[in-house]
Amino acid sequence: MNIPMLDLTQQYQTLKEDINKALDKVMSSARFILGPNVKQLEESVAKYSRVSYGVGVASGSDALHISLEACGIKEGDEVIVPAFTFFATAGAVARAGATPVFADIDPVTFNIDPKSIEKLITDKTKAIIPVHLYGQMADMKAIKDIADKHHLYIIEDAAQAIGAEFEGKRAGEIGATACYSFFPTKNLGAYGDAGMIVTNSEELAERSRVLRAHGSKPKYYHHVLGYNSRLDEMQAAILNVKLEHLNKWNEMRRKNAAYYTELLNKELGDRVITPVEVENRYHVYHQYTIRVKDRDQLQQFLKDNGVATMIYYPKPLHLQPVFSDLGYKEGDLPESEKACKEALSLPMFPELSKEQQEYIVSKIKEFYQ
């Protein structure tokens, strides 16, 4: 049996007619940049996130970068980010001219540890970027308490967590802004790069709109140095079709996650640490990530048996060569470093079958016997 990490072909077949109709309308209209589909998507995603404004941009990475600049983050400022996440989180801080300051993670959820944040705040700290990793929101109550106490911006990196909730609040409702990626592999994925900033602040939304269009307002009058970062009509048209199905897909992911957990706990006991969904959080399982010993050997064994897996992430950000000038060394953030050696993401997509899951778990069991 061959099982991919993600299978988008099944999803496309169910939506093919609607997507092709939507794309044909765009082609016929000859409106390709910042047209009615983008406006509709901005309004729909903002409503879905229970906030007032959405600003479509070219990618999730750009959403982070533009959010930082909209919040006034600049050279000399510090922004606290988790060390265990995708590079874009810290990369956006550096591209804004600020310094990323790396916090350790909670080993249970893989998310940034509020206790680690508190120790890192200085008079240069201007913002915190909690990443809602793998589809589960960080401890936003504790993070908001810290941010309020020190008058810091919260920019939610919700690239993997559209639809996730913390104590009844959706990703996007708590921070000054939240940033989505619509990369094809995401729970709500385009057929290319795309992203969005959502916010309740009219001021931050307007700044973001200006920054995404070369810093111009009105057109051809430039008061700030901006970027070319616009969500195009074709991607927006695809996303408008897919957004209607997001809640259903997230529920299918949750059912698949529950079945994985049932099988793994039954068949492997303490050999595998399964994901923990913390009380009062709604996890949307962008990834189903386990912790195991002999991770690399297990990954190779599964590959040899037709099962694709991914390591998110093999090297923590504080030890990346590009940040070597910041002076971090191995051992500084032990939980992040440990996660990089133990985390393994199994195939996860809404259409994943029970038969496929049973095969995957049987092979993991076979490896450890």
Rank of each mutant, 00 (worst) to 15 (best):
M1C: 10
N2H: 13
I3A: 01
D7L: 11
T9N: 14
Y12Q: 05
A22Y: 01
I33D: 09
L34E: 14
V38C: 10
Q40N: 09
Q40H: 06
Q40R: 08
V45G: 00
A46S: 10
A46F: 00
S49K: 01
A58L: 13
A58S: 15
A58T: 11
D62F: 12
L64T: 09
S67K: 06
E69V: 12
C71M: 12
K74H: 09
K74R: 12
E78T: 05
V81T: 07
A92L: 09
V93N: 03
G97F: 07
A98Y: 03
F110Q: 00
D113L: 07
I117P: 00
I121E: 08
I121K: 09
D123G: 02
T125I: 07
K126I: 01
K126G: 01
K126C: 04
A127V: 06
A127W: 07
A127D: 08
I129M: 09
Y134D: 15
Q136M: 07
A142S: 08
K144P: 11
I146N: 09
H151C: 10
L152W: 05
L152R: 02
L152N: 00
I155H: 02
D157L: 00
A159K: 11
A161F: 04
G163P: 01
G168M: 12
G168L: 13
I174Q: 02
A176M: 13
T177H: 08
T185P: 11
Y191M: 15
I197F: 10
V198L: 06
S201G: 12
E203C: 06
E206L: 12
R207W: 04
S208Y: 04
V210W: 11
R212P: 05
G226Q: 03
N228A: 14
S229F: 07
M234Q: 08
Q235V: 02
E244R: 02
N247T: 02
N247L: 04
N247E: 07
W249Q: 14
E251H: 08
R253L: 15
R253A: 14
A258C: 09
K266T: 08
G269I: 04
V276G: 06
E277D: 13
N280C: 10
R281Y: 05
R281G: 03
R281C: 04
Y288W: 14
Q297V: 04
Q299M: 15
N305E: 10
M310H: 11
Y313M: 13
K315M: 14
K315R: 14
D332E: 08
L333T: 00
P334H: 09
E335M: 08
E335P: 01
S336Y: 02
E337N: 01
K338W: 13
A343D: 15
L344D: 03
L344A: 05
S345M: 11
L346C: 10
L346M: 11
P347F: 04
Q357R: 14
Y359E: 13
V361G: 03
I364R: 01
F367I: 02
F367Y: 09
Y368D: 06
Q369N: 12
